[in-house]
Design a protein around this nucleic acid. Sequence first.
DNA 1: GCCAACGTTGGC
DNA 2: GCCAACGTTGGC
Length: 156
Amino acid sequence: MAAKIKQYWLLKSEPSSYGIDNLQRDKQTDWTGVRNFQARNTLRDGMQKGDLAFFYHSSTDPTGIVGIAEIASDAHPDPTAFDEKDSHFDPKSSPSKPMWFSRTVKFVKKFKEVVPLADLRNTKGLEKMVLLQKGSRLSVQPVTEKEWEVIMKLVK
DNA sequence: GCCAACGTTGGC
DNA sequence: GCCAACGTTGGC
């Protein structure tokens, strides 16, 4: 087994479709619907069970980091890709040759207050954060340990 | 609702 | 392999 060094991630979701309150209620969920190759690779290959991820709300007011989730399973084929009735159905993915993957993620905590995107932009040490790069739209992305620590200091 | 930026598709 | 057209993401 590879050295188990904890890594950090950020998961984006629109709260109108699935937000931190849903995760708190469900305790855990299958993180499905990722349909971008780079995000897919991170989800499938980059993560290790036990890693932690910020939960980010996009397309809401304010946008920002709202809590923490834990990566609670190994990667498995994303079942929504096989479901013709699902909006994420993809005929190019099949159970014998899956193209898309998902992970179980567990609720860890919800912050008392959102850490808004605008604050992240104004915080020293986060200049290189993937989330803050111009045009960045990755829904699954890495966070360095330093960035994680800097952000945790902003949490109220 | 607008629009900039990105990823994918398909014609050539 | 290029690139225009299109659809999507996501901040504002």
